[in-house]
Simulated scan of single mutants.
Amino acid sequence: MAAHGTIRYWAAAKAAAGAAEEPYREGTLAEALEAARERHASRPEFARVLANCSFLVDGNPVGTRDHAGVRLADGGTVEVLPPFAGG
Rank of each mutant, 00 (worst) to 15 (best):
L50A: 01
Y24H: 12
L72N: 02
V80A: 07
T28M: 13
G87F: 01
L56Q: 08
T6P: 04
E79S: 15
P61S: 08
M1R: 11
A41G: 04
E21T: 10
F46T: 06
G86L: 13
L81I: 12
E34Y: 02
R43P: 04
L56E: 08
H4D: 14
V78L: 05
S42M: 08
T64Y: 07
S54R: 12
P82S: 14
F46N: 02
R48N: 02
L29Y: 01
E45W: 05
T28Q: 09
R8K: 11
R39N: 05
L72R: 00
A19R: 13
F46G: 01
V78Y: 02
S54T: 09
E79T: 02
T64N: 12
K14L: 12
A85F: 12
V49E: 00
V49M: 05
R48G: 08
T6S: 11
P83M: 14
M1E: 08
L81F: 11
D66P: 07
E34T: 08
A35M: 04
S54A: 15
A3T: 05
A85E: 00
L33Q: 04
H67T: 13
V80G: 04
F46M: 00
H40M: 05
L33G: 04
R39E: 07
A68R: 14
P83R: 07
A30Q: 09
A51N: 02
A47C: 12
